[in-house]
Nucleic acid binder design. Structure first.
Lengths: 223, 223
DNA sequence: GGTTACAGTGAACATGTGTGCACTAACAAG
DNA sequence: CTTGTTAGTGCACACATGTTCACTGTAACC
């Protein structure tokens, strides 16, 4: 009996006339957002199609109009979360990269973006290891690519422009892992305490500093 | 109709007369092993009570004779996996701790233990972030404790005996995170290629070396 | 203005799930 | 030998899940 369109899935938007594709993309986004919302306290594996559909305000079968399976939804989540990550390094790049203060500003932009798109980062860090399906391989692939980019960036620094590509990659991976650990600490804190946040970022800066200090004494040999 | 004891859940052991508690603990272990086996390609969240019970060769309701819920099984898995981890550092400690070669021997024992108890380490790394239930907090707690121990160990080294407890902790956490990343790489490799393993451990050594090199230039100030 | 494409509905299915209940047979203790 | 414990069984229930099917009303197209 209910009209399929008049009160659409996304909730009553201020009734602007929107195209059909527009509307479809809107409930598609609604599905994604619903999933992210539910993922606050569940892992992707423990997430059912019906649940997501209900949260988005559509009937289970309508889900298939947007995704062929839950895995496909997962991929979409990876893409969207990765976009957040890329926006972050874009931000990080345009900051003052004076060797001394690059650490502080990098951690700061990391922190800002994590707090701004908490669900994305929570999803990425959770499913990086947790998931086993296509989601995990998608994240792994994207993260590998991300590591490559960071390696290139690192190569531009003072003491690092003589390093081999392999060593740069090694260092980049170490930084990525360490920072993802920081992200996990940030998104899993129960009450977003201001003081706790300060402590976490402080440790993150120290870890980064320790790594960077190692550059001075580096020699690539020793198999 | 089937005899409940004569052909017990654990499979026909060579018919030694075993006590009752013995037998119970045996199927309990069988449940744990079955779970670990299933966890090879599933996350703990996507694991059902019935599935585990069937894999262990008992009927679903008998599961409750051993665990009140799946979460409780998860805790048992954490305990058992953590035992592997502790055995590892016990091994690592008795190795030659000459500052220069500590890295090589540490990574080697890490590698040996990971390959020897792959399921345990896979479970730990997967559910450390992936899980959300009691399992994750149990792992987090144990891992925090583990970090403390490592911090104490680090404090005994040459250049580190003057460091503050906080800084030692920071370094220990960095090392733990990095090494858990290595473990993930090891247990998620599809074909346990000998060459791939060598590469992974090589990178792990380099990362560890980079961190240790940073110790030389460390100054604890800079808030 | 009539026709088509299609996002959405609702009923239905087969299957898997967690859990309660009454029961059984062997062990351990009296 | 008797008796109580208990690990295990089998049945049953209520419910959630993924997926199918025929359908409907509207936006888009000729």
């Amino acid at each position: 009996m209910v009209d399929a369109r008049t009160l659409s899935a996304v909730g009553a938007q201020s009734s602007e006339p929107v195209s059909r594709h527009e509307r479809k993309q809107r409930t598609r986004q609604s599905l994604i957002n619903s999933a992210l919302r539910l993922l606050r306290d569940r892992s992707f594996a423990g997430l059912s199609l019906r649940e997501v559909a209900k949260e988005a305000g559509i009937v289970p079968t309508a889900f298939y109009r947007h995704f062929a399976s839950m895995d496909e939804l997962g991929i979409a989540l990876v893409e969207q979360s990765m976009r957040s990550l890329r926006l972050m390094i874009r931000d990080a790049r345009r900051n003052p990269e004076t060797y001394g203060d690059a650490i502080r500003s990098s951690v700061q932009t990391l922190y800002d973006h994590v707090r701004a798109h908490e669900e994305h980062f929570r999803f990425l860090t959770r499913e990086r290891y947790g998931g086993v399906g296509p989601v995990q391989v998608a994240i792994a692939t994207e993260l590998r690519l991300f590591g490559s980019e960071l390696a290139v960036d690192l190569g531009r620094f003072e003491g690092l422009n003589t390093w081999s590509a392999e060593d740069l990659r090694m260092m980049a991976d170490l930084i990525v892992t360490a920072m993802l650990g920081t992200v996990t600490d940030l998104v899993d804190v129960r009450a977003p305490d201001q003081e706790a946040d300060a402590e976490i970022t402080r440790v993150a800066r120290k870890q980064l500093r320790l790594i960077v200090l190692g550059v001075a004494g580096w020699r690539s040999d020793t198999p």
